[in-house]
Design a protein around this nucleic acid. Sequence first.
DNA 1: GTATCGTGGACAATAGTTATCCACGTTATA
DNA 2: TATAACGTGGATAACTATTGTCCACGATAC
Lengths: 160, 160
Amino acid sequence: MQMKTGVEQSIYAMLLLTFLPDKGVLPGEFISQQLGASPTYFQKLLRKLVHADLLMSVPGAKGGFRLKASPEQIRVFDVYEAIEGKQSLYASSGVFEDLMGIQNQNICLLSDLMAEAEQSWQSTLKRETIDSIRREIYLNCPPDHLTKLQSLIEEKMIRN
Amino acid sequence: MQMKTGVEQSIYAMLLLTFLPDKGVLPGEFISQQLGASPTYFQKLLRKLVHADLLMSVPGAKGGFRLKASPEQIRVFDVYEAIEGKQSLYASSGVFEDLMGIQNQNICLLSDLMAEAEQSWQSTLKRETIDSIRREIYLNCPPDHLTKLQSLIEEKMIRN
DNA sequence: GTATCGTGGACAATAGTTATCCACGTTATA
DNA sequence: TATAACGTGGATAACTATTGTCCACGATAC
């Protein structure tokens, strides 16, 4: 199994949008261009993020996307869940429970373990936020690159 | 993303094989029947388990499969890895690193976090063994069901 | 009114997973 | 020695999920 590439792209999209001044907005096509993603499909991902209340969308000319909440409030897990959905990594087929004659009892040989493993995975993703990653970027990126990106965004963004 | 059903089936296959007396062997077709899996595909899974040194196979008439190591030594994670392979859940595309001008430096915005999350997930799977699940089964299953299964296996198994 | 943007649905292409088949090597047994 | 039962590995097909495209539509700025 592999995480959808859409999760990575979405997290990066959120990070890009942290560069955006208040009341500014970025068109979906510009974002997908920066990430090298297919524009039409990436719009679908953006819509998922809107549905998950992570992004705000402004329709019409001069429209685009902006973060709905502050970067400190958006956990990496929120983005993950918005794209991947809420289904868990493992779902018991029930075959073995049948074989063992423990269908309706609350004994979950594997399920418990798998659920716990997934919890561990998720809790790591819940610990970090878009902001904590953004701070790392500010610390580690070459400043000239950072200002170049900043000015590119301010050039392409749309104020309301 | 979803875990392959083959992982679940393989773990159950390992559990079934713990019922097997020493020097006994179970044909792949019998195992797949018990698990309600497709016989031909399940053979492929069994071969992966053999390759991973979790199972021993005996060719020829009176052939079949048996555990290679003792159940205490086989971690749930080993089975998981044998079926899913060693690739990690997340692989950085590198697009964002390019965008940020940090291609070859050891800064891994997301990669670190994702690697840590996967570590947590895996460590839970490494904690439990086939034997620890087997013990739970012995504790929780109706004894009559257990003996019925035991005798079914002894009937179908092949001694060498 | 027109150009630009997001929205949602239908649909196609691609990739990954599951399933089937067959020719082959090995071994037990008649 | 022949034959039947089993695992092996490759080729290939069916199925499913993911990714990608297209279009008609509504909203908004100008």
